[in-house]
Amino acid sequence: MQYRYKIAGGDFSNAGAVASSVKKTLRQLNIDHRLSKRIVIALYEGEVNVVAHAYSGIIDIDIDHERIKIRITDKGPGIVDIAKAMEEGYSTASTQVREMGFGAGMGLSNMKKNSDSMQITSEPGIGTVVELTTYLNGNEG
């Protein structure tokens, strides 16, 4: 079963709308609320990343009987050094911005922590694709 959502870059007021909608779907599918919480937190981080860094993005959700796959495709600046971006606390944000509570550098690591597998591909100047997979029967990884 597929769902597709469009996100506009810079639209901070609506960041989280996709996560809310998916959360409701997971409740309707009777997914355990602890598992659902992980999925939604990872998705929320991904959604906010698109709003904060990219020009536009598409989130594709694919649910089958064993896993939920979230694919976040954006048009944006891309990530130059993915390995570095994955490090906890690494951030491109300036000290000034970080002092205000933004850009803590936890986004990608939080997404990894809250999903069973995560894959990132990025082309600087073009955009980024993040794929998150979480198994529904409780299998880790």
């Binding site: 409701k24 409740r27 309707q28 599918l29 009777n30 997914i31 529904l136």
Partner: peptide
Amino acid sequence: EKLDEDFT
């Protein structure tokens, strides 16, 4: 809100 107890 669950549509059914069974996920499938």
